[in-house]
Design a protein around this nucleic acid. Sequence first.
DNA 1: ATAAGCGATTACAAAACTGTCAAACTCAGG
DNA 2: CCTGAGTTTGACAGTTTTGTAATCGCTTAT
Lengths: 239, 239
Amino acid sequence: MKKIMLIEDDADLYALLKYNLEKEGFQMVGAQTGKGAIDLCRRERPDLILLDIMLPDSDGLDICKGIRARPELAHIPIIFLTARASEADRIVGLELGANDYIVKPFFIRELIARIKIQFRPQSAPQRTLKSGILELDRSSCRVFRDGQEIALTATEFRLLEFLMARPGVVFSREQLLDAVWGHDRAVTDRTVDVYVLRLRQKIELDSTGPGYIRSVRGFGYSFNEMSQAQENSERLASA
Amino acid sequence: MKKIMLIEDDADLYALLKYNLEKEGFQMVGAQTGKGAIDLCRRERPDLILLDIMLPDSDGLDICKGIRARPELAHIPIIFLTARASEADRIVGLELGANDYIVKPFFIRELIARIKIQFRPQSAPQRTLKSGILELDRSSCRVFRDGQEIALTATEFRLLEFLMARPGVVFSREQLLDAVWGHDRAVTDRTVDVYVLRLRQKIELDSTGPGYIRSVRGFGYSFNEMSQAQENSERLASA
DNA sequence: ATAAGCGATTACAAAACTGTCAAACTCAGG
DNA sequence: CCTGAGTTTGACAGTTTTGTAATCGCTTAT
């Protein structure tokens, strides 16, 4: 459960937000004053801070700055809630390290949606390609079969990566040369055959039956799409 | 340099945004139509998408859904630009996976600030990086192996810092030059080899077997991810 | 059945890559 | 101005990777 710290001096708005956000499943802690907000933060370690800019005793912008300056708190997302709608106010707020800036009056449901965005795991760009027990990790340039690393050369890796990223699609030798070797390269298309062979020798479990790479007579090659059933049976075969 | 894709049918607004964002240092690509936006995305691989919701030929919400549905594009942040200001519209947009929702008319500078938020590294950089008995302290610019300080030069330190902060990820010599030496620097990529050599001489325990820095033939170098088991055995070996 | 066409396989020489070394260069401080 | 640490380049050798040609073997069409 996520813990949200709410710093807001208007008692009505404070209560309204507390009620609605608790109903949404958040754990709320907070203060109606800016004094000691950073210490409170250090004690409570909230997952997000909702911060009013105009507080009676201190400036929300200063609190934001203070939080961003402490390494142990700096990562906490901050959302400003404020009536200051001028361009300058917005820019300052956002450039001070806030993650969002919501102008009063606002819709509660929009606030909730924007809070959830902060908690949304921003999915990393697809790191790994998987098919059955075969796994290709783009960032580390490694390939695993059933958890065991398979050593591939750079060209082999790029070819496999290209095909695995587009399962089922058939590519001519020329297309593969363009994609993997580069448009300018002057390379015989028979070269592709050799690399497909080398890949097969390294990644296929056995030479009987259809494997990962499919030859399409007269057209080229493709990476075999695997149905769930096939994937399962293969996983068994390797065990 | 970050690449932004702008999909906006209003020619005036399109030109205005293109001009201002290019001035801000972003590389702009775009379309004034929603048709084929996803294909364009796949080709261009932008780092962020600015998306008008009301397009003459298609719905921005559908485009957003389509992008979130493709694994290779799903990670790209999307900011909606729209005149639809109703609560329902905002909620739908945000819950569809958009990262921000800006209502027209808006301030260009606010848009820029909100774009920069998307590019901001979300988690605070760690003060110290550790891997096995190797420890790098960013604030004091020092490196320790098993508590014992290792003297590194500034460039050696930056290279090690860059690699240690991204364990397992392979970088080409060119990427390393960009990151450690700076984009402008005119330096041969053989320089990287020499620094890797020197780093290895300084930080590796012995020259047998794989150490901290992995050479990936044909690609570049990476810092070896260490499993807990490896870390422990290494700690023993050094004791 | 036969020939033609195409993919699979093998072997080999050329090219590329990395680790290493030593020399040249830069630049700040004494 | 000299010195020395830090940086960069070029060269070299050992190894791996790469592309090609030649051959084999299967499939298809005649």
